[in-house]
Design a protein around this nucleic acid. Structure first.
Lengths: 117, 117
DNA sequence: TGGGGAATTGCAGAAGCCTTCAACTCATGG
DNA sequence: CCATGAGTTGAAGGCTTCTGCAATTCCCCA
């Protein structure tokens, strides 16, 4: 078994999350298992492109797929992703608020530029 | 103000976390503000490479830097990253455990391959 | 005022990731 | 058995990201 430093495993994990389509899939799957067809309808994207992203999620083990007749159903692999996404949203909210605050300052500064110096 | 879909902002956020050095920096900064020199000592890496990664973190707003004489001190921008990293660790633990379980099965299977079919 | 250390920036080459097209597998229904 | 629809896989091309070197900035101290 190959020993990988923990911080590297974490980095890979976050990188795995770092794609809009993959995020949307995880969010959708939080409502419960979904067939590909349904994901495809919700996220507008080429089927093969969705498949590629699903493959990334599958390889990481965060989702699993099961065949049911001619359709394939995906579901979260137990892991509660909800907490993670919630924590991310909290931070993101702070960060965006910060940026808005900054932008507000800059807008004011346009009116009296001296304040920036 | 340019309106970016939330799932895209989330993806960018996770992508920003997706680098071993950046993860280590965030972990170190959880103990409190640290001068670059100290980060450099803890993480073995070229100074310029660390600077690049610090710049990524800075741009995202998750850390801030302040000059103190000839050294520069970095700190978390308030956001409590701890929760996020904790949630990530939980999931990661599950995933790794899953993989180990799987590997164990495969090892058994080597001894009686029929069980896999 | 000039030397020197701390950190950052600019950049080029290498590495990795994303999208898309075409080919393929698998199950269903005629 | 073959055609068709659902998904997946493979591979190429274009883009982004990473690493490391060289040059630069900023501050301190002699």
């Amino acid at each position: 078994m190959q020993r990988v430093p923990l911080y590297q495993a974490k980095a890979e994990f976050f990188r795995m999350l770092g794609h809009p389509v993959r995020i949307r899939v995880l969010e959708l799957l939080q409502e419960g298992p979904k067939p590909v067809r349904e994901l495809l309808a919700a996220i507008e994207i080429e089927p093969s492109s969705l498949s590629q992203q699903l493959a990334v999620l599958r390889r990481s083990g965060i989702v699993v797929s099961a065949r049911d007749g001619s359709t394939v159903v995906y579901s979260l692999a137990g892991a509660d992703v909800a907490d993670l996404l919630r924590a991310a949203r909290r931070i993101l909210t702070e960060l965006l608020a910060g940026q808005q605050g900054l932008l507000a300052e800059l807008r004011e500064a346009e009116q009296s530029p001296a304040r920036l110096l």
